[in-house]
């Protein structure tokens, strides 16, 4: 189980130290072993930043990440590196996720070389054959360089590398968004099958609502750096106005005139500017509250 508590990430402008960008604001997130949480949201809402903070690839500004009872954010150097193999990333751009100067086999096998203590005397050649077979690549393709494989084949190689050491948690950051539609389905099936086998937790980041419904045991919707609604099957019965909007985009046309972003206070609801059902209280930042089968950040539900 991996858990993020009160995670925030602020970026400071290089030229004006007072200009802060809040990429992620006060997010609580939990993913159990074997469970998939589909994280959905618009571009730039902080999905990828949140995913990378959970993997401790970006240090959070506030909050901490707990993994199997250890606080990852307090770990340093060698201690952290020794445990890194347990959480892996499959990124959006398969073509830059592998070192272009290395063969695919070299990249897939690197985790075995790094974590020799855990893998013990496992035969690298056998492991490579096993992984290549698991992700559905041809044996000959392992000896090639990344530029010689297609996007779909590369993503398979990236997945092979990610699952090489049977991790406990994987972040899939829009793993199919750069691939042809015809290949997307097979990659999704591959991810589902391998996840079931390993029994690992998965944070599946996407902006595709159908994909989120297929992949997610639970679904979380993100807006402006915050999770605004989270629970099982929330996309079938959306409650938050933003979730309602993304589920049926047609509704958007009846939305009232927008409030210019500059007139909102910093503590207002993230969706204030274009929310069709806003009330005066929306100028105050809504707290996360439990409402039936879901958690939601909206004044309308209370």
């Amino acid at each position: 189980m991996i858990e993020g508590v009160g995670l925030s990430k602020n970026y400071v402008s290089e030229y004006n130290r007072k200009m802060l960008t809040h990429a992620v604001k006060d997010v609580d997130i939990r993913i159990d072993n074997g469970e998939t949480l589909a994280l959905i949201g618009e571009s730039g809402c902080g999905k990828s930043t949140l995913g990378r903070m959970l993997l401790n690839l970006i240090p959070p500004s506030q909050g901490e990440v707990l993994f199997e009872g250890n606080c990852l954010t307090k770990m340093r150097g060698a201690e952290l590196r020794a445990i890194r193999w347990k959480f892996q990333i499959v990124s959006q751009h398969p073509d830059s996720a592998l070192n272009p100067r290395w063969t695919v086999a070299d990249s897939i096998l690197e985790p075995f070389r790094i974590h020799g203590k855990i893998t013990g005397g496992r035969d690298q050649k056998q492991e490579l054959e096993r992984l290549i077979d698991l992700v559905g690549l041809e044996p000959g393709q392992a000896a090639r360089y990344p530029h010689q494989l297609s996007g779909g084949e590369l993503q398979r190689a990236v997945i092979a590398r990610a699952i090489a050491l049977d991790p406990a948690f994987i972040v899939c950051d829009e793993p199919t968004s750069m691939l042809d539609v015809s290949i997307q389905a097979s990659i999704i099936r591959l991810l589902q099958a391998r996840q079931k086998e390993i029994g690992c937790g998965c944070l599946f980041i996407t902006h595709d609502i159908q994909l989120a419904k297929i992949m997610g045991d639970r679904i979380a919707v993100m807006l402006g750096g915050q999770i605004i609604e989270e629970g099982k099957r929330i996309l079938d019965h959306p409650v938050h106005p933003f979730t309602q909007k993304i589920v049926s985009p047609g509704l958007n046309e009846t939305a009232p005139d927008l409030i210019p972003a500059c007139e909102c206070s910093n503590h207002a609801c993230s969706f204030l500017t274009s929310c069709p059902s806003r009330i005066p209280r929306c100028n105050i930042y809504p707290e996360m509250q439990v409402c039936g089968d879901r958690r939601i950040r909206c004044h309308l539900v209370s």
Partner: peptide, 14 residues
């Protein structure tokens, strides 16, 4: 900034 550097970090390389 490349993804494979991020990947390398997640592999546990120093």
């Amino acid at each position: 900034e490349e993804n494979y550097i991020l990947t390398a970090r997640s592999k546990g390389l120093d």
